[in-house]
């Protein structure tokens, strides 16, 4: 399937809710980029600015009980799954009040109670974990779905083949979501990847959707079908969403690169297809909300982020012995 076969549209309420959440991701990450420069974060961040529609479109069709595996570029997945923005900022600031008590940081923000089975700094590691979550779901028999977010870089890990094979063989409820942003860290996909990534799922008999990841309606509509496929017990599904990240691989890349690895023209071309702006235009066009109301939604997102910064800043440094105690249960 090149895209969703249907032309079903989200109703105004769903569209506005997706817009609000996309705004929260965008504003959070803009703030985090400033925070890195201000020295508020002990480590670096990998931003997903420009990719918001994929996380939001997919997670809008997931329930709290459904799981996802996230990546090093995971702030958007975390917020799309409905996790607390305050606890995310505190985590990235390295505070004990963080969602992972300051032990994980930006690459690993995950609220397991909301179904995030880890945000992984090892590219492709979520594939096996999501397949395992799918196995647990199948054994439980309650129709839970596990969605695995991974990038075009991770698609070149051999474990993708292993997990496609097993999940199809066992008919596991796993939704593979490839966020193809065109770059494996600093290498253009075309220099390290042959063929079409989603084609890799086809020989396993897995249904495939290849979509515009910057169109939240397209992602939402695809997720409607793909999540339903998984939930029905028919086995895994595979979505490749073409998208782009504006900020690069990580926040300090300008300091380590001697020459840019992508052009300003390319970045501007993608900004012209910005998923947040497109969603706003759609809302206005549909008259689901007017300019003033959209403006208010932006201010609300700003306020959430402002509150999260204050919460994070007021947090406390974890005690030096924390890691020792947390390594193993019962210690």
């Amino acid at each position: 399937m090149a895209a969703s076969a249907s032309n079903i549209q989200p109703d105004d309420g769903v569209l506005i809710e997706m817009y609000r959440r996309m705004l929260l991701i965008r504003k959070s990450e803009e703030q985090l980029f400033r925070d890195v420069k201000l020295g508020r974060t002990p480590g670096q961040v990998h931003l997903s600015d420009g990719q918001e529609a994929v996380a939001i479109g997919i997670c809008s069709l997931l329930e709290d009980r459904d799981q996802i595996t996230s990546t090093h570029r995971g702030h958007g997945h975390y917020l799309a799954k409905g996790c607390d923005v305050n606890a995310m900022f505190a985590e990235i600031y390295g505070k004990a009040e963080g969602i992972c008590r300051g032990m994980g940081g930006s690459m690993h923000v995950a609220d397991y109670s909301k179904g995030i089975v880890g945000a992984n700094g090892i590219v492709g590691a979520g594939l096996g974990i999501a397949t395992g979550a799918g196995l647990a779901n199948q054994l439980e028999g309650e129709g839970r779905v596990a969605a695995c977010f991974f990038g075009d870089g991770a698609a070149n890990q051999g474990s993708l083949m292993e997990c496609l094979n097993i999940s199809s063989l066992w008919r596991l409820p796993v939704l593979f979501v490839c966020e193809n942003n065109g770059y494996s860290e600093f290498s253009p996909s075309g220099t390290v990847t042959s063929g079409v990534i989603s084609d890799r799922a086809k020989p396993f008999g897995i249904p495939v959707w290849n979509i515009d990841g910057n169109d939240v309606v397209d992602v939402w509509r695809t997720a409607l079908e793909a999540v339903d496929h998984c939930r029905s017990g028919a086995g895994p599904a595979f979505v490749e969403a073409r998208t782009y990240r504006y900020s690069g691989h990580f926040s300090a890349e300008a300091m380590v690169l001697s020459t840019p690895y992508r052009s300003d023209e390319e970045i501007e071309a993608w900004r012209a297809r910005d998923p947040v702006a497109r969603t706003r235009a759609l809302i206005i066009g549909r008259e689901a909300a007017n300019d003033a109301e959209c403006e208010r939604m932006e201010l609300e997102a700003d306020a959430h982020v402002e509150g999260a910064v204050a919460f994070g800043e007021a947090g406390t440094a974890p005690c030096p012995g924390t890691a020792n105690r947390l390594m193993r249960a019962g210690s």
Partner: peptide
């Protein structure tokens, strides 16, 4: 039985264990 796919075997084990098995 799993296929001869050790990366998946260990990854699946971690994921299933994190989800209640």
């Amino acid at each position: 039985n799993t296929p001869i796919s050790e990366q998946a075997l260990t990854g699946i084990s971690a994921g299933a264990a994190a989800c209640g098995c």
